[in-house]
């Protein structure tokens, strides 16, 4: 969707119809359908995909960063993908959760 204008337009018109074509868990479906950046981050979406999706949703930059931090607070550490691939990163996610996020 991030790279196809037609899919973006279709998604804008009828999210359910677009999403029906994909094999998604209920959690994945809800996260995409509701634009829950925090949950998508925790589920393991690569930031390079998520950032573009947030831009499509017209989410401001600092709100986007905060949404990921809020997601970790709400749903716990990142579960899959590149950010969850290392134990040290799982530790980071926990620390980040405790301190309420970091970075610029």
């Amino acid at each position: 969707m991030n790279r196809d204008d037609r899919t973006q337009k279709e998604f804008g018109r009828n999210k359910r119809q677009v999403l029906a074509a994909y094999d998604l868990t209920q959690e994945e479906y809800t996260a995409i359908e509701s634009g829950d950046i925090g949950l998508l981050y925790v589920l393991g979406v690569n930031g390079q995909i998520l950032m573009h999706y947030a831009a499509y949703l017209k989410i401001e930059w600092f709100d986007y960063l905060q949404a990921m931090r809020d997601g970790v607070s709400k749903y716990g550490p990142v579960r899959h993908g590149i950010y969850a691939m290392k134990e040290q990163n799982r530790k980071y996610a926990r620390v980040n959760q405790l301190r309420g996020g970091g970075g610029a």
Partner: peptide, 10 residues
């Protein structure tokens, strides 16, 4: 760099 993550800017 840690682009597009909560650590963006680090």
């Amino acid at each position: 760099h840690w682009p597009a993550t909560p650590d963006s800017g680090k």
